[in-house]
Computed example of a mutant assay.
Amino acid sequence: MKSLDELVEAIDRTNRQTVAVAQAADLEVLKAVKMALDQKLARFVLTGEESALKKCAADAGLSLDHSDIHWKRAEAGESARLAVQAVAEGEADVLMKGHVDTKTLLQAVLHKEYGLKKRKVLSHVALFEIPGRDQLIYLTDAAMNIQPTLEEKVEIVHNAVEVARKAGWDNPKVAALAAVEAVNPKMPASTDAALLAQMNRRGQIRGCVIDGPLAFDNAVDREAAEHKNIQSEVAGQADILVVPTIETANALYKSFVYFAHAKVAGVISGAAAPIVLTSRADDAQSKIYSLALALKASQS
């Protein structure tokens, strides 16, 4: 797959899934909902305050009477709970953030009674279309885990691989990043990367091929890998970049977007259903890309 538009086109329109939007009274979110309905990507459960939702829907040119919309009136504090419960009870397949803060939404996701927690770790999985590059590339984790332990990195890899495989990457190539490609006991990122690779070789992490430690250039550029004589299935052709800390991921993420002008889709993985957790600054088209990735990731 070479573009995010191809990802959108790959969505099954014959058996559409349902997306529950928490506090849907957000102009760009409802523009994305309208775009998704026009393209027959999904059906929607919208939660939120009636007056605010009606006003935003009118501004977005969206009719709340649409046959593929079911909306639930809720005060601001209840909208996240209702959206999460809609997913937990099988009424929806994907959870999407609207005009609600991330903390409130994740508190509902992690609620012991009606929440959606499945794995030990929730992590952010981003998929980038970078101009001049002939393939899409994943990056994890740029939003959830600050300084993950080795055990948490294993879960982060599992989450990213699950998303990638469901989106069409068979046996994705995973690069565990560090500052260098040699193991250095003084650099924990390099030892963790080597352990992830060894765990993969021994079958403790399945469904992918992992190599590391790899510096960023050796992970994404074949000439750089060949120059250092790195013999690897992953080096120079990574599908998934796994970073050591959130600072590394944050810098790469924003470099891709602001310097390389990349398009991006992003989801939270590790819950019982994918979560679309885009920035309020993202436009409707960006939200469509993230929604498409979540719909692919929710497939059984």
Rank of each mutant, 00 (worst) to 15 (best):
residue 2 K to D: 01
residue 3 S to F: 00
residue 11 I to F: 01
residue 12 D to L: 13
residue 14 T to N: 12
residue 17 Q to K: 15
residue 17 Q to T: 10
residue 18 T to A: 01
residue 19 V to D: 11
residue 21 V to S: 07
residue 25 A to D: 09
residue 31 K to S: 06
residue 32 A to W: 05
residue 32 A to E: 08
residue 33 V to R: 05
residue 33 V to L: 07
residue 34 K to W: 00
residue 36 A to L: 06
residue 36 A to R: 05
residue 37 L to D: 13
residue 40 K to A: 15
residue 41 L to Q: 11
residue 44 F to M: 03
residue 48 G to S: 06
residue 49 E to R: 10
residue 49 E to G: 09
residue 51 S to V: 09
residue 51 S to T: 12
residue 55 K to G: 04
residue 57 A to R: 00
residue 63 S to A: 05
residue 65 D to Q: 13
residue 66 H to T: 00
residue 71 W to S: 11
residue 73 R to Y: 05
residue 77 G to N: 09
residue 79 S to Y: 04
residue 83 A to M: 03
residue 88 A to N: 14
residue 90 G to T: 14
residue 95 L to E: 07
residue 95 L to N: 11
residue 101 D to G: 05
residue 101 D to A: 13
residue 102 T to K: 03
residue 104 T to M: 12
residue 107 Q to E: 15
residue 107 Q to K: 14
residue 109 V to S: 02
residue 111 H to E: 12
residue 113 E to G: 01
residue 116 L to I: 15
residue 118 K to V: 07
residue 120 K to N: 15
residue 121 V to H: 14
residue 126 A to S: 14
residue 130 I to M: 05
residue 131 P to G: 09
residue 132 G to V: 13
residue 134 D to R: 08
residue 144 M to R: 06
residue 149 T to F: 05
residue 150 L to S: 04
residue 151 E to C: 08
residue 153 K to Q: 14
residue 155 E to G: 13
residue 156 I to C: 08
residue 158 H to N: 14
residue 163 V to E: 00
residue 164 A to D: 05
residue 165 R to N: 08
residue 168 G to V: 00
residue 169 W to Q: 02
residue 171 N to I: 01
residue 173 K to T: 08
residue 175 A to Y: 02
residue 177 L to I: 01
residue 177 L to N: 00
residue 178 A to M: 04
residue 179 A to E: 00
residue 180 V to R: 05
residue 181 E to T: 09
residue 184 N to W: 07
residue 185 P to N: 09
residue 187 M to A: 01
residue 188 P to G: 00
residue 193 A to R: 02
residue 196 L to E: 02
residue 198 Q to I: 10
residue 199 M to K: 13
residue 201 R to L: 11
residue 203 G to N: 12
residue 206 R to A: 13
residue 206 R to D: 04
residue 206 R to P: 05
residue 210 I to A: 08
residue 212 G to Y: 00
residue 212 G to T: 06
residue 215 A to D: 05
residue 218 N to D: 11
residue 220 V to K: 03
residue 225 A to E: 04
residue 227 H to Y: 13
residue 228 K to M: 12
residue 230 I to C: 10
residue 232 S to K: 09
residue 235 A to L: 01
residue 236 G to R: 06
residue 240 I to H: 00
residue 254 K to Q: 03
residue 263 K to T: 08
residue 265 A to K: 07
residue 267 V to T: 11
residue 277 L to G: 00
residue 277 L to T: 01
residue 285 Q to R: 08
residue 286 S to W: 03
residue 297 A to T: 08
residue 298 S to C: 15
